[in-house]
């Protein structure tokens, strides 16, 4: 068994005045694993991700990243540089005057020189198929392009794990397909959170679900399709 890169144990989180959100939540992600997390809106998926990134602090439980217990903010500061976290809303993630500045922001924070950062940024933009977009203004891009630039901003940091929060929100079917094919080419461990089972099936190997504040295995449930075509009542094969 490879070592766990993300481990959440017995997490409890309560929003002030809104009752328990997560309770007794356990989760782990190992190197090379591709895990999908399904959950209806409001199940606490984003809350869980923010806890594992150290943006929210649980009332109880322990977060371990790369084998180290996250005791304080400083520990999280270091671990975050190794995790690529894609936010649900790209406008929250992209804040620089140009695409290049935004994609180079992470590498510069990692302490790379401007030249190395530029190099990394160009590479990351190529990976997401947006080379040539360097001087564009992020807020004028389409929703799909914004999402891809946001993905590039974390790929340029060469993360060891990808954590994607509802990456398909607001995307057109074409952009969604493009995202699926880009993700297929990325080797690192990943945790994808979505309320779209189809997208999770296309981008991950294991499906988990967040129900009643804890993680449970995805359910296998048979379902049938109504299938209509001309002369469909005559016995035939597909």
């Amino acid at each position: 068994m490879t070592s766990a890169v993300i481990e959440l144990s017995d997490i409890e989180y309560t929003f002030p005045g809104r009752g328990i959100c997560l309770s007794g939540l356990n989760f782990h992600l190992h190197e090379g694993e591709r895990v999908g997390l399904f959950g209806p809106n409001g199940a606490g998926k984003t809350t869980m991700l923010h806890i594992l990134m150290g943006l929210l602090h649980p009332q109880r439980g322990e977060v371990r990243l790369f084998g180290r217990t996250m005791a304080d903010g400083r520990a999280f500061d270091e671990a975050r540089l190794r995790i690529g976290f894609l936010f649900q809303n790209s406008d929250d993630q992209l804040f620089c005057p140009t695409v290049l500045d935004d994609v180079a922001f992470g590498p510069l924070n990692q302490g790379l020189s401007p030249d190395e950062a530029r190099q990394r940024a160009t590479e990351a933009l190529t990976t997401v198929g947006l080379s040539g977009f360097e001087d564009y203004v992020p807020y004028r891009l389409s929703g799909g392009e914004k999402k891809l630039v946001a993905l590039a901003t974390i790929l340029s940091m060469r993360p060891e794990v990808l954590v994607l929060d509802e990456p398909t929100t607001g995307l057109s079917p074409e952009s969604r397909e493009r995202l699926v094919s880009i993700l297929a080419g990325l080797p690192m461990a990943r945790l994808v959170v979505s309320h779209e089972p189809d997208f999770l099936a296309a981008t991950t190997d294991t499906l988990l679900a967040l129900r009643d504040g804890r993680i449970v295995p995805g359910r296998l449930a048979p379902h049938s399709h109504v299938h209509v075509h001309e002369e469909g009542d005559i016995p035939h094969q597909h």
Binding site: H50, M53, L55, D77, R80, L81, I83, F85, F87, D92, Q93, F95, L100, D101, A104, F105, G106, L108, N109, Q110, P114, A117, R118, T153, I154, M157
Partner: peptide, 15 residues
């Protein structure tokens, strides 16, 4: 939050 996730600690490094 998004900036902190990309390692921002209060100072901009410019290219």
């Amino acid at each position: 939050s998004a900036m902190r996730c990309r390692g921002f600690r209060g100072r901009f490094h410019s290219m």
